[in-house]
């Protein structure tokens, strides 16, 4: 489903290369964990997948279902099913969460040539999904992410993911700032979306989340490259021994 080949990327308008020859393949149905110390380029990779303009790909390619997505803007990528749950969800005063959800869902439907949702259909979907994530309906009337607690923001991201039904889900540090109960709710939300035609990339630097969202593959990202890949036991090794061994072996 996703093939990243020898990807090099820098911060636009500078010479600072952050992704330095990264290779990664994620198959449909797979849950891949990306781990790595702070500053290794995990968030940058997620932004590049979503098409953020602040980064420039200088070499290599990203294939999604066999096609390069490098020329697509963020909205086109989203409509094709790529979803990024942000490490730091963005506050948007003046845009009610409900209104935002409706516009996002309908714009994606339009881009795919589908009919817009009727209001009752939209309301029902939101109510169901919010209920599963134990989101208070009052929160959805508030401006998007404004005044939400850390945990509410993360839940709101997963709510969006559930409603938009993407094919490739990228979760950037969705566990940070969550207490254990919230973590379980969020993990249940993610697991509910697991399906043979959907791939998930879970970015985290703690093993904790992976106890609830059990990955098929684990990849260690360091200085903009995948330096080691393995199965879920790799996550336990990293938890026990830290990154030093892996980094030392790769150097």
């Amino acid at each position: 489903m996703l093939e990243i080949k020898n990807l090099h990327a820098k911060i636009a308008d500078t010479e600072t290369e952050i992704i330095r020859g990264l290779n990664l393949t994620v198959k449909a149905g797979e849950v891949a964990a990306i781990m790595g110390p702070n500053g290794s380029g995990k968030s940058t990779l997620s932004y590049i997948l979503s098409g953020r303009e602040d980064y420039e790909v200088t070499d290599g390619d990203i294939l999604y279902n066999g096609e390069s997505i490098l020329e697509l803007d963020p909205a086109e990528r989203a409509a094709k099913g790529i979803f990024l749950a942000f490490q730091y969800p963005v506050e948007i005063p003046g845009v009610a969460t409900m209104q935002f959800l409706k516009v996002a869902m309908n714009e994606q439907r339009k881009a795919r040539g589908e009919d817009e949702l009727t209001t009752p259909d939209f309301m029902r979907r939101v109510k169901d999904a919010a209920g599963k994530l134990q989101i208070d309906p009052a929160m959805l009337k508030r401006p998007l992410n404004v005044g939400f607690s850390g945990g509410e923001k993360k839940r709101a991201e997963i709510l969006q993911m559930a409603l938009l039904e993407p094919k490739l889900c990228v979760l950037d540090e969705t566990d940070s700032g969550l207490d254990i109960d919230a973590l379980k709710i969020v993990a249940d939300g993610v697991n509910a979306l697991r399906s043979p035609d959907r791939a998930t990339i879970v970015i985290t630097h703690y093993q904790r989340l992976l106890d609830y969202i059990v990955p098929d593959t684990v990849h260690v990202l360091y200085k903009g490259q995948v330096i080691k890949s393995g199965d879920k036991t790799l996550a336990h090794e990293l938890e026990a021994n830290g990154y030093a061994d892996v980094i030392g072996a790769a150097a």
Binding site: R77, G94, E107, Q160, L164
Partner: peptide
């Protein structure tokens, strides 16, 4: 960027933000 990353095309995202302001 955030609005676009949710599938809202640039002109619409811009209009939403102006209206929100």
């Amino acid at each position: 960027y955030y609005l676009q990353a949710r599938g809202i095309p640039a002109p619409k995202a811009r209009a939403l933000l102006i209206k929100a302001f």
